[in-house]
Structures are given as structure tokens and as C-alpha cells.
Design a protein around this nucleic acid. Structure first.
Length: 564
RNA sequence: GUGCCUGUAGCUCAGUGGAUAGAGCGUCUGGCUCCGGACCAGAAGGCCGCAGGUUCGACUCCUGUCAGGCACACCA
């Protein structure tokens, strides 16, 4: 925030410490009564060999007071600064009005390329709540990086190759009915997949049959491949329905099969570099001196693995996009896998190994235990989204029966609730799926934020005055206004912090804080009042708040209806 | 067994080494002659897993320990 920087400079001038260091030391007091910003002097005590309280007093007495600071107090070792609320309001709101929907954006990224690998569902398997996290976290990071001036490339590394397709083809050949597959592809595919495992327990020869079909796929057999393509198309069609609902887009759908013909070269390269060793008939890169198990490149039967594909994909992406960063939004279970193959990239002599980042997130499980497609212990995302939308529609019918386009709004709010719920907490936390929590729309939830926005929009629509870009900061000095404006002022920092930590929850939290502060202001101060000037001043604040909430939600991939 | 992650209010979680540890849910109480009650206000609820250490100062950093989760080569 601009005032923090200027304040740090003034403090720097008097303490002779670098402004950046001061800036890091500046804090927000636990209680507004104490001040709006605080500078603790404990650290100075050591170097200056003086009592910190004395130093605080000295700073307070001698600092050149900037115009945005109204008064300075000391309390113990703290120098406490109180903003001139009118100047603060004036500056911050003018800034938001000027920048509009670009408020908080920057060109910090300077067009450098960030590849974001996210979502990556397995073809022919249902899209369940476990896949949601990678999808919404990746999508939000995409928007955040883009907002900060990076060129983002969203890649859906589909799980579209492997022995499971052999199983599916086998199952289809035995029990498949074409109509079911066309009508409800994923569920039909899941059914025959589950059935395959049941039957294979009784008749192990089915496994051999499945391996044979996969072998035929690998060998380019047309019958096998056309069935594979058919399954893939059916699945993608279903996935795209989900992605449409979520408003998620990818620049590339280059799945695992895309790298089939690119791996040989990489294996050769590994061979040339002398990194491959044979172990129990398989080809591995030994990582024992890095305290990791070996990274397997080729199985005993000569086929490739996950790691082989990931290494190949990384090299391909570097060559194709020349990324400055490549993020892998993948569950933390795969932490070791990523550490292993990142190390292999380093050992291959690629100096960009430190531009690869695993962005891990916690597991989603059910009260009954971990999700398991095979055991049928699974909650389909489509069902979750549908239930959330249905519930929203019920609430709208009850609370706002006159609302036009109810269905559209219910989608925006219901889906927003599910997405927000997945983004509000630190991504490393595990989630135990609970309908009660997902469908709760009170408190720290998406609908709460959307509701605050809708209220703001409603006021703007009903106002008797119009705002004209002119800000009257003098009239926005109440405690609630100060709190709200300070949060609006710090919004850009929240975006930067979120980008820095690859952590959308920082934006989600900050947006919640703004909505809360707005609701408090709303409760305590009428906006549409007889005093025209006062009304204009407050309308401007309402307008700016709505603008920032909209930006916050959009960075999370959530819509902000004007009415709900 | 080894490595990684997580332990903060009944539950879900915030908390760049700084002041009296904060929200939401749930529970209890109160609030629309007034811009949208999906809201607001208040109450109750805490040895910040435990023990050491570093520091003027530790929920935060270090070490140890306990508990839970995850991973540990022919799945992805």
C-alpha cells in the first residue's frame, strides 16, 4: 500500500535503516484504538544501545509527519500512527475508481510464461470431488498470475493412456452396450470398469486379456485405438460439461498419450548422460546419494512409466513454451514422485530444474474413508454442483421470488459456493467431505461474499444520486469506513502474496474480510440519505467495494451476480 | 523403519518473531416504522499436542517427543 511505503521511507530517513526492512517491520496493531499502523522499536534497541521506549519517543518527536498521518502516539516500544482518514479515503477510492476492474493488477510478471498443469482427470473415470481441488486451485492460480502480468498456459495433462484402457476394452467387448455408453458415458464406463474388477477376481484370464488389448494399443492396432479414441471422446464430452459449469478453460489438452512418441528420445538422452542403471531388469536413475529411492524410467517389460512421461512433458514444454515457471497442481501424495523427477531433470543438466514447482494440496476423503472409485465410495462432482444449485434455487424462491433468471443466478451462486468452499482454506489441509459444510451458505462462504456484492449493487441501483468519479474523502471517516477502506487498500498485496505462495486462499480470505467489513458499514450507516454530498461519498465507497469484491471473486473463478 | 505434511475454541480454520491469540459453523441472547435478515450485535467456549532451547520477546524459528495423514521402484 502506498502509504505504508511512504511511511517506511520517512522512518528510514530517521532510523537510517533500509526502507524495505522498515516496511517488513511495520505492522497493523491488534486494536484500532492503538493506531492504524505500528512500528516496534525493540530491534533498534540493540544497535542503538538505548531503551526501546526512549527510541520510540524519539522517533515520534522527530519524524517528518506525512500528510496522510493525522497523529502519532507512542505506547511502550511502539510508535503508533493514525491515518488521516479523509486523505486515506480520498487516495484509495480515487485509485480504485481510476483502475476499475484492473485494480490490484500489475505488470510484475512482464509477460514471462507460467505453465500451469492442473485438473488432469483420468479418462473413463468419473470426475469426483477429489478432482475438484486441482481444477479450482489451478484455475485460480491461472487468473492470479495472469492478473499480475504473466502469460499463462493452462495444461490439462489428461490420464488418457495406460492399462486401464485394456481393461475397459476387454469389459466393453464382454458386456458393453453401445446405447448406455452414448447416453451416460461416464457412468456406463464406470459400471463396466467396476464389473471388470469383480469378474477378474473370479476369472484372472481377463487380466491377461486386458494386458493384451493395451499391448495392441501400444502397437498401433486400429481396432484397439478406435475404441480408445471413442472412450476418450465420450469422457471429454462429459468433462467439458463440468468445466463449462465451473467456467474453467485450458489452453492445451495434451494428455499422457501425447507423449507416447516423444519418450524414446528422452530415454536415449538419459542413456547418453550415463544416468540410467539397470536394476532387477528395469531401467532406473539412481538417486541414493540424494536420499531418495530410484526413479524408474522403464519397467522390466520395457514399457514406460509416469515419471518417464513427466520428464518428457517437462522437456517438451520447456522447448515449446520456454516457461519461466511450471506449476504442477497435484495432490501431496505425489510429493516424492515430483522430487524424484525434478532431480532427474537437474542431473540431466537442464538449468531450469528450479523452475519446476509442485503445488501440493490436501486429500479429500469421506467420513467413511478415502475415496475409491472401484469400491464405489465416491461423490460425483456433477451431483455436488447440482445439489448446490438446487438448494440455491430453493433459497432464491423463498427469499427473492421476484428475481428474474433464477436458474442462471442459482448456478452462479451454487457453483460459487462449492468452489469457494474448496479455496477458502490453505490448500495443504485435508478435507473430509461434508454435505452440511458444502451446502452451508452462511458465514465464511461464497454466497456470503456474493450477497454482500448484491447488496452493494442494489444500493447503487436505488440511489438518488449518481457518482461521477469525484471522491469526498472528508465524509468517509467513520470507524467502519476506515476498516473497509484499509482492507480495500491492502487488496493488491493480498493478490501478490497469493501469487508468491501459490495460495488462492489468501485472496479468498481477504475478499471475505472485505465483505464482512462492508456488511458492518452497511449496518451502521445508511447510504441513501437526504444529504446529497454524504450520499455521494458513501455511494463511491459502495461502488469501490463492489468493484473489489468482483475482482476478488473473479480471481477465484467465481461469478458475482448483481441480484440473487 | 525412513522421509514429507498436519496438530490453535465442541467442529472447520486464520494468524510476515511483537501489544490482551482471532474468524466462521454450532449453542444461547438480542436486533428490521430504516438502502436486501444468505445480515448485524452480544455471550459462552483456549496449558496454540507435549517438553526443552534460541531471543528483549515464540502459536510462529531450532531440537526432541507424542498423535494423525501421506509416501517409500515395475499404477498414475
Amino acid at each position: 500500500m502506498i502509504f505504508d511505503i511512504q511511511l517506511a521511507e520517512e522512518l528510514s530517513a530517521i532510523t537510517h535503516l533500509p526502507a524495505q526492512e522498515i516496511s517488513d517491520m511495520l505492522e497493523i496493531p491488534p486494536d484500532r484504538q492503538l493506531g492504524d499502523r505500528a512500528f516496534p522499536c525493540f530491534k533498534l534497541a540493540k544497535t542503538m544501545r538505548k531503551n526501546p521506549q526512549f527510541i520510540a519517543q524519539e522517533i515520534a518527536d522527530n519524524i517528518k509527519k506525512p500528510n496522510f498521518i493525522e497523529r502519532i502516539e507512542t505506547k511502550g516500544a511502539y510508535v503508533n500512527f493514525f491515518f488521516n482518514r479523509a486523505v486515506l479515503a480520498q487516495t484509495v477510492l480515487e485509485d480504485i475508481l481510476n483502475k476499475g476492474e484492473h485494480y490490484g493488477s500489475s505488470d510484475k510478471g512482464n509477460g514471462s510464461v507460467v505453465c500451469i498443469d492442473f485438473s488432469a482427470p483420468n479418462i473413463a473415470k468419473p470426475f469426483h470431488i477429489g478432482h475438484l481441488r486441482s481444477t479450482v486451485i489451478g484455475n485460480s492460480l491461472y487468473k492470479i498470475y495472469e492478473f499480475l502480468g504473466y502469460k499463462c498456459i493452462g495444461i490439462n495433462h489428461l490420464g488418457d493412456w495406460g492399462t486401464q484402457f485394456g481393461k475397459l476394452i476387454t469389459a466393453y467387448k464382454h458386456w458393453g452396450i453401445k446405447d448406455d455408453l452414448e447416453k451416460e458415458p461416464i457412468k456406463a464406463l464406470l459400471d463396466i470398469y467396476v464389473r471388470f474388477h469383480d469378474e477378474a477376481e473370479k476369472d484372472p484370464s481377463l487380466e491377461d486379456e486386458a494386458r493384451l488389448w493395451f499391448k495392441r494399443m501400444e502397437d498401433g492396432d486400429e481396432e484397439a485405438l478406435s475404441l480408445w479414441r471413442w472412450f476418450k471422446d465420450l469422457s471429454l464430452r462429459e468433462f467439458n460439461k463440468i468445466y463449462d459449469m465451473l467456467g474453467v478453460k485450458f489452453d492445451y489438452y495434451t494428455g499422457e498419450s501425447f507423449y507416447n512418441d516423444k519418450m524414446d528420445r528422452v530415454v536415449e538422452l538419459l542413456q547418453e548422460k550415463g544416468l540410467l542403471t539397470e536394476s532387477q531388469g528395469a531401467l532406473v536413475v539412481d538417486l541414493s546419494q540424494y536420499d531418495m529411492p530410484p526413479c524408474m524410467i522403464k519397467k522390466t517389460d520395457g514399457t514406460t512409466l509416469y515419471a518417464t512421461r513427466d520428464i518428457t512433458a517437462a522437456i517438451y514444454r520447456k522447448e515449446t513454451f520456454d516457461f519461466d515457471k511450471c506449476l504442477y497442481v497435484v495432490a501431496y501424495q505425489q510429493d516424492l514422485h515430483f522430487r524424484q523427477w525434478f532431480k532427474v531433470i537437474e542431473l540431466m543438466g537442464f538449468d531450469w530444474y528450479d523452475k519446476l514447482f509442485h503445488v501440493p494440496f490436501g486429500m479429500v476423503s469421506m467420513e467413511e474413508g478415502t475415496l475409491s472409485t472401484r469400491k464405489g465410495r465416491v461423490v460425483f462432482l456433477e451431483d455436488v454442483l447440482q445439489k448446490a444449485v438446487d438448494r440455491t434455487l430453493d433459497i432464491i424462491k423463498e427469499k427473492n421470488p421476484g428475481l428474474e433468471n433464477k436458474e442462471d443466478v442459482a448456478k452462479q451462486v451454487g457453483i460459487g459456493a462449492v468452489v469457494f468452499h474448496d479455496l477458502i482454506n490453505n490448500r495443504i489441509k485435508d478435507i473430509v467431505f461434508s454435505w452440511d459444510q458444502v451446502l452451508n451458505f452462511d458465514g465464511e462462504t461464497g454466497p456470503y461474499v456474493q450477497y454482500a456484492h448484491a447488496r452493494a449493487m442494489s444500493i447503487l441501483a436505488k440511489a438518488t444520486q449518481t457518482i461521477n468519479g469525484e471522491v469526498v474523502g472528508d465524509l468517509l471517516t467513520e470507524d467502519e469506513a476506515l476498516e473497509l477502506i484499509d482492507l480495500l487498500a491492502r487488496f493488491p498485496e493480498a493478490i501478490e502474496a497469493a501469487c508468491q505462495a501459490n495460495e488462492p486462499s489468501i485472496v479468498a480470505r481477504h475478499t471475505i474480510d472485505i465483505a464482512q467489513a462492508f456488511n458492518k458499514f452497511y449496518k451502521n450507516h445508511m447510504v441513501i440519505v437526504d444529504d446529497d454530498e454524504l450520499q455521494k461519498a458513501r455511494l463511491t465507497l459502495v461502488y469501490a467495494t463492489a468493484q473489489v469484491i468482483r475482482i476478488g471473486l473473479s480471481l477465484l473463478g467465481i461469478q458475482a451476480p448483481a441480484k440473487m
